[in-house]
Design a protein around this nucleic acid. Structure first.
Lengths: 342, 342
DNA sequence: CTGAAAGCGCTTACAG
DNA sequence: CTGAAAGCGCTTACAG
């Protein structure tokens, strides 16, 4: 009566659509339609199939569906960090934009490494994704090649692409760096330093904006620029402040490429008895949660990361559906938050 | 010569194993073996297949593999939050433990919601995962039912299960809450308050430890307990401090269920001119990055979240491989960090 | 509105 | 060490 052991071995042991259909007394593909396109099926039939699903505890097999339909409903997201609150906010935006649409989001953490990005991309491409969300504009040659040969739609997040052919959602990192530096100049600071970590694309662009503003004002001095490859943390901010002050004690203001650096620098000043902003002004970037509350509160650039994720996901979805987006470069801007520290 | 249009329609357009095999002049399944179990194949053959893979740019189709092998190599991870640094550290640990093994990690953010947890579980079960990593011990009846009927191996993270039949990796949240409160009592504080957010399982257990210690010492007063459902943030800590002080101005110490609450409370004290710990001692939980650096530095409990993720993933993998683990309840402990704020 | 047939791209037994 | 056949669980044309 039962199938012989060897015939059962291949099966997953789960309830299949065929069993649901049999129970409902319909064909397999009618059952499929009743579940996936209920509007194309008679009311009574839908009810019968639904009941069979419930009774049997049927769970669709996504792998089978992906294989048969050549559509995975998977979207790959690559972010450089999960410990950075900026990118977890981006992820929230993506989830909110995509979650309800049956998409599965594959999150890859590249840890600011090109090699890791290549590896993750290779692995995630095996899932035959419908589209890709990438952080930043700049990627290794191999990543660009892989992306090109995959022919998949890609949206870049956090910065604005130069070419309107590329899809991007974010704001000008360079502009933001420039704006913050201009703010410090307008406040009368002259010897303005820059502290950067990670050497990632966005930090470098902010530094470029910083440099440009100072050069225009005729007070750029490369001695006042400190850039390290380590990840951005409060501890690093504390350390870099010491380094900066020993190299360039004349600094009257420091622009930190991220808020955690600024927070660490301020804590270090407090320990050393340096008044902020009295003796030294310090500002950050991103407006992380602690910045508005600590004393002194941190002057910074608030960035629309949640919306970046949300809009990027929306844009990608539109392209996947075959729409030709009117705007390919979505500028979400940024906001200078003038507070106590600078 | 070409297949008619209608025959091609179903295909994904990607290079298949069959094409790789043809190019290498071997059978499909030999090609499969050369790729997946190269040690079972002759050196020369492996080289030929490898070359064909490279020339054609072959990317395996994960859905097809999952379907044919009834093994998805997918592991589902459900965390209650991504903005909480505790869980991003857990995720890092999981990735490090699993990443190199070909596992794909499906991350679900339940946002501290039972309904969301049920929904995510239902969706992720469609991917036929090999195992599940869950945060916490307590879940809704529906989640427990779904889990049971899935028959999948499950490891609970962050706390220790009562039963040795369940797999769990973490530490005793209750013990930790007790320990912190004992520390405050030993320092001579009598009117010790508790500030909690989220009302999640772990917060409730820490509160229970707090209560137990105070009851033993004969100085428990429910008026000094403030618990809200909102997510734990610095801003909330600042707000709750105000609330606590208006209800129970006699407080001489406050135990916050999370560091961000403690940080917010301390910032608020600074704004109100309340000396910490002179007039009011404040301590937190989890040892988040800012806590060691701010002034005053925050007395807290350091929790081994990275290792929780790492060990939980290892344990799950062992069970998936069919091993019977010697220890089903892995206690990673916690460390009291006595600093300046209490 | 409903269904039988074919096929998605791979792997599992099995045989040589 | 190597391979032809069957099948995983679903959906896509196509026909009625």
């Amino acid at each position: 009566m039962n199938k012989p052991e060897t015939m059962r071995n291949r099966a997953s042991g789960r309830v299949t659509l065929t069993e649901v259909a049999a129970r409902a007394g319909v064909g397999t593909m009618t059952a499929s339609r009743a579940i996936n396109q209920p509007e194309l099926v008679s009311e009574a039939l839908r009810a019968r199939v639904e009941q069979a699903v419930a009774e049997l505890g049927y769970v669709p097999n996504r792998a089978a569906r992906a294989l048969a339909s050549a559509q995975s409903k998977v979207i790959v997201v690559l972010v450089p960090s999960l410990s950075n609150a900026v990118f977890t906010a981006v992820l929230s935006g993506i989830q909110d934009a995509l979650g309800s649409d049956g998409y599965q989001i594959l999150i890859g953490n590249t840890r600011y490494s090109d090699a890791e990005e290549e590896k993750l991309l290779g692995i995630y491409l095996q899932s035959n994704p419908d589209g890709i969300l990438l952080s930043g504009l700049t990627h290794s040659k191999r990543v660009m090649d892989i992306l090109a040969s995959s022919k998949l739609p890609v949206v870049s997040m956090m910065d604005l692409a130069a070419s309107p052919d590329a899809l991007s959602v974010g704001f000008s990192q360079l502009q933001a760096g420039y704006t913050m530096t201009r703010y410090l100049l307008d406040k009368g600071y002259k010897n303005i330093g820059f502290m950067g970590a990670q050497r990632d694309e966005r930090t470098l662009k902010r530094a470029e904006g910083y440099r440009r503003a100072l050069q225009e004002a005729g007070c750029y001095d490369p001695r006042r620029e400190t850039m390290v490859a380590d990840p951005s943390t409060v501890a690093l901010g504390a350390e870099l402040l010491g380094r900066m002050l020993s190299v360039a004690p004349e600094c009257d203001a420091i622009f930190c490429c991220n808020d955690d650096l600024a927070q660490g620098a301020i804590f270090q000043c407090q320990r050393r008895g340096i008044a902020v902003p009295g003796q030294l002004a310090i500002c950050g970037f991103n407006d992380l949660p602690v910045s508005a509350w600590m004393n002194p509160s941190v002057t910074t650039i608030a960035t629309p990361r949640y919306r970046v994720g949300f809009e990027a996901a929306q844009l990608l979805r539109a392209v996947i559906r075959g729409e030709k987006p009117a705007v390919t470069r979505i500028d979400l801007g940024f906001t200078l938050m003038a507070r106590e520290s600078a």
